[in-house]
Design a binder for these strands. Structure first.
Length: 563
RNA sequence: CGGGGCGUGGCGCAGCCUGGUAGCGCGCCUGCUUUGGGAGCAGGAGGUCCUCGGUUCGAAUCCGGGCGCCCCGACCA
């Protein structure tokens, strides 16, 4: 049993001035975390209990999935990272030891774990296996934000699977997938598994686990039976409002119509009857991207279509290759050889598009007939789209985990190979699987927070039962509360007892801030009836009072019914 | 990296424009009263005003450099 009179629980009536996100405000107010520097957070005792409960759940499910826990150094020789090329990552903390040796602080542990596997594994007989660690990771984030949500130092569970072939990797990936579902469900956080961008690592597949919440940094696209990061989401746009065909391109004067809105207004047509032209410079030079007028570019999808990162073209570059900014189009470009990409959502019907002359657009322009272009999927999904006829919703979410089929990127770079049955040397096939416990805590706080505090799910609440005696220390109420707490403690419940001298309001408010699922209050009135008042924190539901003579069965029932 | 904001007691803030005794609410300590929604009275402690330099008789306040923190965007293997 823990006593509030002895617990370092620095609750605050007001949130810190610089806290914006709900989870940031509430977790500081509830005395769970304190900031030490930008992106550097300490966990106070109650907060650490929550964090460790999440870690315990992760550990149980990892073990159940057959993964083996180990520990690896956070401080590592830079040389390892040079082998994989990851020493160039800006977020990597780099430093020297006293001898001048180049070191790094690990942001993940692929290099370290793969190095050992390379040293140890010789034969296919030793495969497959999955290792994991729950350790501090360091990242020199350009912008830490939202309290505990994006920090420079954080604990991460990282698992690494090692298989002899792709089928083995698929099996390991599936085992982790199953474990992840159990972990998030057990923690009580709302989550989605979404398709994610494999990015420059070009792996065979990747999924992110996203917890929807207001402070989320990513947007996810949801429809019945569908969930994807907007960075990869492919949805069906609402039908375009087409105009009467006129058979061939024809100039139309459009002074001062440099935006789609102005253009559509001027011509009295829907934005979807126009084409939006965006000029970017990618790995292979300047490219003109055409989308439906009411769509916008999704930068990650475009980067994938271009095969590398890109930047907006300058006005000079645009003028040299295409035409005057604001009136760009695929016909009569200054350099007719300019690559033109056409988004899949643009129909093979006539559209209005820039004429590459200031103040002039062309109407009646039809893809395929009037110009040629490579079809790509680069539009951003948006509300109003559908997937298989089901309307989509786009919500902010925070990434609480990811799984990735790495393949042989690390094993080849670090020489992790094995001899197969034929005595042939093969690279080990690898997968990696990360979870950020602090983000599970923070996103749960976002999802379960209200104006009074955080209604923690019972699986990760710092304590299960919060017993508050309302009288001052030594009073009959306080004595009865202490006895109740001791009884429940002996029955195996996790109990926090408010035995402080404070007033009733203070105790009740702190109980709501801390947010344990079941609150039992012993006051003068309830004590006269031999009872403690019971309230479920989630939803502030009043429950049947607990008998002080035989409290255990009712407490067990109340807790069983709590989320 | 671009843009914006902030730094005054543990927390939240005022004071700065127009230089001259460092202030308010909450919290904290002592005593008495109070005890079902952050209580009352009385007394008290606690601040190099982020830092360094400049201007001035005098700087929290004006000027310059630096550091720190937050927010928006970019970035996020």
């Amino acid at each position: 049993m823990h006593r509030l009179s002895q617990l370092l629980l620095p609750t605050e009536r007001q949130p810190p001035a610089d806290a914006e996100a709900l989870s940031h405000q509430l977790m500081v107010r509830a005395g769970l975390v304190r900031q030490l520097g930008s992106g550097l957070w300490s966990w106070m005792p109650a907060g650490w209990r929550i964090h460790q409960k999440v870690v315990d759940i992760i550990r149980e499910e990892m073990d159940a999935a057959g993964a083996q826990e180990l520990s690896l150094p956070v401080l590592q020789p830079r040389e390892l990272w040079e082998k994989t090329g990851r020493d160039q990552i800006h977020e990597l903390f780099k430093l020297e030891d006293r001898k001048g040796s180049e070191m790094v602080l690990a942001m993940t542990h692929e290099e370290a774990v793969t190095t050992h596997v390379a040293q140890i594994v010789k034969s296919y007989r030793e495969l497959p296996f999955t290792l994991y660690q729950v350790q501090t990771k360091e990242r020199d984030e350009p912008r830490p934000r939202a309290g505990i949500l994006r920090t420079r130092e954080f604990v991460m569970k990282d698992a690494y699977s090692f298989d002899r072939d792709d089928a083995g990797l698929d099996a390991s990936y599936e085992a982790q997938t199953a474990a992840y579902a159990k972990i998030y469900d057990r923690c009580g956080v709302r989550w989605y598994r979404v398709e994610s961008d494999v990015g420059m690592m070009g792996g065979a597949g990747a999924h992110e686990y996203m917890a929807p919440c207001a402070a989320g940094e990513d947007d996810i696209v949801l429809a019945e039976g569908y969930a994807a990061n907007v960075e990869v989401a492919t949805t069906t746009p609402s039908p375009a409002v087409v105009v009467e065909p006129i058979g061939a391109p024809e100039p139309v004067e459009t002074p001062d119509a440099k935006t789609i809105e102005r253009l559509a207004e001027l011509l009295g047509i829907d934005a979807s009857a126009t084409m939006k032209a965006v000029a970017v410079v990618g790995p292979e030079g300047l490219v003109l991207v055409l989308l439906r007028g009411d769509d916008t570019v999704q930068e990650t999808k475009l980067a994938n279509a271009l095969g590398g990162t890109h930047r907006p073209a300058t006005e000079e570059e645009i003028a040299a290759a295409i035409g005057p900014a604001g009136y760009l189009g695929p016909i009569e470009m200054a350099d007719p050889g300019t690559t033109v990409l056409l988004d899949l959502a643009v129909g093979d019907t006539e559209h209005v598009v820039g004429a590459n002359k200031a103040g002039v657009h062309l109407r009646g322009v039809q893809p395929g007939r009037d110009f040629q272009a490579r079809r790509v999927d680069v539009r951003a999904a948006k509300a109003g789209d559908t997937v298989d006829g089901k309307p989509v919703e786009i919500v902010p979410a925070i990434e609480v985990g990811n799984i990735f089929k790495l393949g042989t990127k690390y094993t080849e770079a670090l020489g992790a190979t094995f001899l197969d049955e034929d005595g042939k040397r093969q690279p080990i096939i690898m997968g990696c699987y990360g979870i950020g416990p602090a983000r599970i805590v923070a996103s749960t706080a976002e999802q379960c927070g209200d104006e009074r505090g955080i209604a923690w799910p019972k699986a990760i609440a710092p304590w299960q039962v919060h017993v508050a005696g309302l009288g001052k220390p030594g009073s009959p109420e306080a004595e009865a509360a202490a006895k109740l707490a001791a009884t429940l403690d002996q029955a195996g419940f996790e109990v926090i007892l408010d035995d402080r001298a404070g007033g009733a309001g203070e105790k009740l408010t702190d109980a709501e801030l801390l947010g344990c699922p079941l609150r039992l209050v012993v006051g003068r009135r309830t004590l006269e009836r031999g009872e403690a008042e019971a309230q479920r924190r989630r939803g502030s539901v009043e429950l049947d009072p607990i008998s002080l003579d035989d409290p255990v069965p009712a407490v067990r029932a109340h807790l069983a019914a709590a989320p």
